[in-house]
C-alpha cells in the first residue's frame, strides 16, 4: 500500500466501504458492471463477473474475492485451514469447502464435463444463521467482529450446520465440537493460484473513490 493511498483513505472511508460491501457479502457480482480500477484490483475481467464466477466477502481485514476460474482444485486451502486452526490435517472439517465441490457442483464439476472447482467460504452473515440456531449460544462475536465457536460451550449438536443455508460449519467428528470460519486468512495466504485473495479495504476504497 503506497503512502499516497493511505493518506487519502481514512479510517471512516474504510468503514464506509466495508459497510457497502457487507450488503452483498457472499453473493455473486453477476449482473453488475465493475469499473476497470476495481477489476484490476480483483484480478478478474467483466466477463468473469458476467458469468457469475466472482463472489466477494466482506471481512474485517479486507474484501475476500473468490474467482472460481482460477481455482485448480489442489485443496491447499482446506489443508492449511485445518493445519493452522486444528493442528491436524483434514478436508472434511475445513472451514471453507472445496473438495466436496470437485466432482459434482450443481450443474458443474468434473462429472458434468466441466473443470469448475469452487472454493466456498463462510459468508460471515450480518445476522448469522449458525449463531441464531445455536441452542447454547456457543457462537459468539470476537473482538474483530467475527463469529467464532466457543468450544467450551459447544455441545456438538450440529444445529449450526443445518441452519447455515450453505452448510459451512462442520462438527468435527473427532472432537465433537463445531467449527466455523474465523477469518484467519490461512486459506488465502496459501492459495497457489490466487483464486482466493483478500484485497485490503484501503485499496478497495481508493478504487471506489476513483469511480465516484
Amino acid at each position: 500500500m503506497s503512502n499516497e493511498i493511505k493518506e487519502k483513505v481514512g479510517f471512516l472511508d474504510r468503514q464506509m466501504t466495508r459497510r457497502q460491501f457487507l450488503k452483498i457479502s457472499g453473493k455473486s457480482l453477476v449482473g453488475l458492471t465493475v469499473a476497470g480500477s476495481m477489476l484490476s484490483l480483483f484480478g478478474c475481467t467483466q466477463e468473469d463477473i458476467d458469468k457469475g464466477l466472482v463472489t466477494t466477502w466482506a471481512m474485517p481485514q479486507g474484501l475476500l474475492v473468490v474467482n472460481e476460474a482460477k481455482c485448480t482444485g489442489c485443496e491447499r486451502c482446506e489443508l492449511n485451514c485445518t493445519l493452522v486452526n486444528d493442528g491436524v490435517v483434514s478436508t472434511h472439517i475445513a472451514r471453507l469447502k472445496l473438495s466436496r465441490n470437485l466432482h459434482i457442483y450443481g450443474d458443474k464439476g468434473m462429472y458434468n464435463n466441466d473443470f469448475t472447482y469452487f472454493p466456498d467460504t463462510c459468508r460471515q452473515c450480518e445476522d448469522p444463521w449458525c449463531g441464531n440456531a445455536c441452542p447454547v449460544q456457543a457462537i459468539v462475536t470476537d473482538d474483530r467482529g467475527i463469529r467464532v465457536v466457543d468450544e467450551a460451550k459447544c455441545v456438538g449438536c450440529g444445529a449450526c450446520v443445518e441452519a447455515c443455508p450453505w452448510h459451512m460449519p462442520t462438527v468435527n467428528p473427532e472432537t465433537k465440537k463445531s467449527s466455523k470460519c474465523i477469518a484467519c486468512g490461512a486459506c488465502v495466504e496459501g492459495c497457489p493460484s490466487g483464486a482466493l485473495e483478500i484485497v485490503p479495504w484501503d485499496a478497495v476504497t481508493a478504487a471506489a473513490q476513483d469511480i465516484v
Partner: peptide, 9 residues
Amino acid sequence: TGSVKIADP
C-alpha cells in the same frame, strides 16, 4: 471425515 495427526503443526 477424520484427520492426519501432526506432531508439530
